[in-house]
């Protein structure tokens, strides 16, 4: 099953490679991994999307907790949570496609953030599924380039992850 795991870790060089190394050394899946410093600059917040049986996920959280640089770990999928991903996508936009492309961006609440006479660059946020849906909705060959950040997650309501 797909799980989204959030962690706080010491904002130190090397902390990221400890987490990445753990996943590769133990053969765990990583679908995506995002990381950036938090409002407390001594800490980074990481979101990992992974998948595995319950036993594997239990081991993943235990192994993450064991890393000396990791301060806190939560499996967001255990409760209500929100996740978002950002995508920048450059699409073909010439001739009759140009209007159509703008309409598609509007429908998915995307924003056109760069324009040439042949292309648009669209910024889109949402769940991974929504971004997938957008890409699926485009015609074959319409996408020139796409870059996605991977999911960031946060608990709903009063669920707070902090030290």
């Amino acid at each position: 099953m797909r799980h989204i795991i959030s962690l706080l870790l010491e904002n130190e060089s090397g902390a990221l490679s400890r987490v990445a190394g753990l996943f590769s050394a133990r053969g765990y899946n990583i679908e995506s991994l995002t990381v950036a410093p938090t409002e407390d600059e001594t800490l980074s917040r990481m979101t990992i999307v992974t998948s595995g049986s319950d036993d594997v996920i239990e081991q993943i959280t235990k192994q993450l907790n064991k890393l000396v640089d990791v301060v806190k770990v939560v499996d967001l999928s255990e409760g209500e949570h929100i996740e978002r991903e950002l995508m920048l996508v450059k699409v073909r936009a010439s001739g009759k496609d140009r209007e159509e492309m703008k309409r598609m961006a509007d429908i998915f609440r995307g924003r056109i953030i760069d324009v040439t006479d042949k292309s648009y660059t669209i910024e889109l946020t949402g769940t991974g599924q929504k971004l997938d849906a957008f890409l699926d909705a485009l015609e074959e060959g319409a996408v020139l380039e796409a870059v996605r950040t991977g999911a960031s997650g946060i608990g709903r309501g009063d669920r707070i992850l902090r030290v």
Binding site: D55, Q59, N65, K66
Partner: peptide
């Protein structure tokens, strides 16, 4: 003492 040793290979 190490939680990750528990239920690693046997439940």
């Amino acid at each position: 003492v190490d939680p990750s040793s528990i239920s690693k290979r046997v439940k």
